[in-house]
Simulated assay, not measured.
Amino acid sequence: MAETPPVPRRPPGELEASVLGALWAAEGPLSAAEVQSALGGQLARTTITTILTRLHDKGAVSRSRAGRGFAYSPIQDSAGLTARRMRSELDKQDDRSTALARFVSQLTSEDEQLLRVLLAGAEGGAPEGPQPGPGDAL
């Protein structure tokens, strides 16, 4: 009898990203059942509830009472969440200078220029080069 090949594990964070994507796409707070439906109904509701609880514990979503359960909303958009994660990782470092230097050394020249523009704007200076548009990101 042939063995069934094992189902490959999802990459870390994939389910959280999917759940957040469903919340970002929604026009208002969603229950676990609504998130489950938005994701195609393939995942168990308990799995969705666990992910939503973990996201709440991490401060990525807020929740409010909705009947016997909760309705969830994202606290930040995708860019805001990425920025928060980057800051969280930096806060874990004893040697912030080295961590920042290594981060900057790995940027593309376009991202480095964008970072310079953003830093100049944050300092109140006249930014050099093109201004980032609404769709641009670090």
Results as ranks from 00 to 15, higher is better:
L119I: 15
S64W: 03
S109G: 04
S64K: 09
A66R: 15
M86Y: 11
G41S: 01
R102P: 01
L90S: 04
A99G: 02
Q76K: 11
L119Q: 06
T46E: 10
A66N: 14
F103T: 10
P74Q: 02
E112K: 08
L118H: 02
L115C: 05
A79T: 13
L114S: 08
A83Y: 02
T46V: 12
R84L: 14
M86G: 10
A101V: 08
L100C: 13
L43Y: 14
F70L: 01
D111S: 14
I75E: 15
F70T: 02
H56C: 06
G80C: 06
T82N: 07
S105G: 03
L100T: 00
V117C: 09
T98A: 14
L107V: 08
R96K: 15
I75Q: 13
Y72K: 06
A79M: 06
A71Q: 12
A99I: 01
R54I: 03
Q42R: 12
T46D: 11
E110S: 10
R68Y: 09
R84F: 08
A66T: 05
F70E: 05
G41D: 01
S97R: 14
L55T: 04
P74N: 04
R45W: 00
L107S: 05
S88M: 10
R54P: 00
P74M: 05
T108W: 04
I48V: 15
G41A: 05
A60S: 10
L43W: 12
D57E: 15
Y72E: 04
R96W: 06
S64I: 10
I51P: 04
L100D: 00
S109F: 06
A120E: 15
F70R: 13
D95S: 13
A120P: 03
D77A: 13
A79V: 13
G69D: 10
E89S: 07
S64V: 12
T53I: 00
V61F: 08
V61C: 10
G67W: 07
L114N: 09
L100W: 07
T47H: 03
L55Q: 03
A71C: 09
V104S: 06
Q42V: 11
Q76D: 14
E110Q: 12
G59Q: 04
T53H: 11
R84P: 01
T46A: 11
T108C: 07
S105M: 00
S62F: 02
L52W: 02
L114C: 08
G41P: 00
A44I: 01
L118C: 07
A101L: 10
R45S: 02
L114D: 07
G69Y: 01
S73R: 13
I51R: 11
H56V: 02
A60H: 10
S97Y: 06
I48E: 03
T49P: 00
V104E: 05
T47M: 03
G59H: 09
A120H: 07
G59Y: 09
R116G: 01
L90Q: 07
V61R: 05
A101Q: 12
T98H: 10
Q113K: 12
T47N: 03
D94E: 15
S97I: 09
A83W: 08
T53E: 11
F70A: 14
Q113F: 05
T82F: 14
L81E: 14
D77C: 07
F103A: 15
G67P: 02
L52G: 04
A66P: 03
L118V: 14
V117M: 03
S109I: 06
S64D: 08
L43I: 04
L81K: 03
S73T: 14
R96E: 06
Q113Y: 02
L118W: 01
V104H: 08
A99V: 14
F103N: 01
